[in-house]
Nucleic acid binder design. Structure first.
Length: 447
RNA sequence: UCCUCGCUAGCUCAAUUGGCAGAGCGAGCGGCUGUUAACCGCUAGGUUCUUGGUUCAAGUCCAAGGCGAGGAGCCA
């Protein structure tokens, strides 16, 4: 028997005496009884102390014990439908409390609502709150599910460098740093090019780590530092890529539903919408999406909204377009075959339609937008060189990348999935800054 | 870079046409045997983001600046 139990496992200990080590999340007292809501990292449990059951001096201490004090509580577990908490439904009848530290009285994160700025300034404390705790536990499960699915489906984890000499898509949106006598280095915005080298050694690979974008994007869907998993597969075309994406996403959803139902419930997430997610996901071409948008726009009576939906073939979709398109789907939606011009230089052109690329975005339902972006890569060395010239990229820096196409070039594809966007969708939260422990945005590098 | 909005007690917010600076939570004290962000009573708590201007009078109107949020563009 361990010296203490985890709150998450409390149901196993009904009727037994247990010890819990944790922190006082909330305290309320009612004359001769006091309720302590205690969190231990694995969950939240209500502890009830009656004045007659414990020493009087201890009871007097408990009724004024500040929020966040660290405690070791011993008592007996009983089922009680009234007991709040995560998972909830059980409480501890307190027999003994050891106060490790009485917290200071100036704890800033009171239980009432807080503004965005204040909450973010106190992110180091905010993560203790049930909502943030639940989101970040789900994030951990999402990341675990990603690795689990890839590892059991023949993918090899192959880490790509974070310090890189050149950008895959130009250097304007990269964080720059001095690199000894070698000139500038940049924080990676993707591991894709290195992944492409890796597939010729390992077949199916993925990298999974932080990526950095110095874009001045100030929206609820953007961070300057975010986590991305990027699978890359040899002998794989665009159709096969979409199958991989939908299988992986479905596995993630299933894992979270199975292992984090208490957290989803505490976030009041409508899990029925998640339970519905099943492959195959609907697939439409960019051309079809443009046509659908035109129809929607035609029927729209509101002039302002109509203007917002203005669109011509060749443009990339904005947020209003994505929202309108997704209004008709309760599954994630693949949109494939974007115009070559709006996409990156390395994408394979559509056979007999060079103005279209073999690219695909995956849009999440409920307005969460693009969660995956991928494509079939150019396998012809001459075409790739031509594209590098057209995009004014430094050929010398891409020498090794071009060589990949000279020694056993094959059809290959890959995609990137933004972890925080997926977590935000699964949790049903407004902003992706809550989907990472310490968010980095254009206006914030503290704490 | 552009557009829109905001800044008042530790926190979340109110303050009518320009006319005495307010509430809830949090903190302190007291009460209560089933609370769920408990409740009830009392107490303390203010450079209204900054600077300048208009006015008998500015939280409120004007100008400049600062900080933040949402969105556009760009993207996962």
């Amino acid at each position: 028997m361990p010296d203490s139990i985890r709150v998450a496992d409390i149901a196993q200990y009904e009727g037994q005496e247990v010890t819990v080590k944790g922190w006082v999340y909330n305290r309320t007292h009612k004359g001769k009884l006091v309720f302590l809501l205690v969190r231990d990292g694995s969950g939240f449990v209500q502890c009830v102390a009656f004045k007659d059951d414990i020493e009087e001096s201890m009871f007097d201490q408990l009724i004024r014990l500040p929020q966040e004090s660290s405690v070791v509580i011993t008592g007996s577990v009983r089922a009680d439908k009234r007991a709040p908490g995560v998972p909830g439904g059980y409480e501890i009848g307190v027999k003994q409390v050891e106060i490790l530290q009485e917290a200071g009285q100036e704890y800033p994160m009171s239980l009432k609502e807080h503004g965005v700025d204040f909450a973010l300034d106190n992110r180091h404390l905010w993560i203790r709150m049930p909502s943030q705790w639940a989101i970040l536990r789900i994030r951990a499960t999402v990341m675990s599910a990603v690795r689990e699915w890839l590892d059991t489906n023949g993918f090899i984890a192959m880490d790509t460098p974070i310090l890189t000499p050149v950008a895959a898509e130009g250097t304007t949106t990269l964080f720059e740093t001095e690199y000894f006598d070698e000139g500038k280095a940049y924080l990676a915005q993707t591991g894709q090019l290195y992944n492409e080298a890796n597939i010729f050694a390992f077949g199916k690979v993925y990298c999974f780590g932080p990526t950095f974008r110095a874009e001045k994007s100030k929206t609820r869907r953007h961070l300057t530092e975010f986590w991305m998993v990027e699978p890359e597969i040899a002998f794989c075309d665009l159709d096969q890529l979409m199958e991989i994406e939908e299988q992986m996403i479905t596995h993630i959803i299933q894992r979270v539903l199975k292992d984090r139902s208490a957290e989803l419930k505490s976030l009041e997430r409508d899990t029925e919408k998640l339970q519905k997610i099943k492959p195959p996901f609907p697939r439409i071409s960019y051309d079809e999406a443009v046509k659908t948008l035109a129809d929607i726009r035609e029927k729209e009576m509101d002039r302002e909204k109509k203007e917002l939906l203005d669109f011509e073939w060749g443009m990339d979709f904005g947020a209003p377009h994505e929202t309108e398109l997704m209004a008709h789907y309760d599954q994630p939606l693949f949109i494939y075959g974007y115009p070559t011009e709006v996409k990156a230089f390395y994408m394979e052109p559509w056979p007999d339609r060079p103005e279209v690329s073999k690219s695909v975005d995956l849009l999440a339902p409920e307005g969460y937008g693009e969660i995956c972006g991928g494509s079939e890569r150019i396998s012809d060395p001459d075409l790739l060189l031509k594209r590098i010239h057209e995009h004014d990229l430094p050929v010398e820096a891409f020498k090794w990348y071009l060589e990949l196409r000279q020694f056993g070039s094959v059809t290959h594809s890959g995609f990137g999935m933004g972890v925080e966007r997926v977590v935000a969708w699964i949790c049903g939260i407004e902003h992706i800054r809550e989907a990472i422990p310490f968010p980095r945005t254009i206006k914030r590098v503290y704490p």
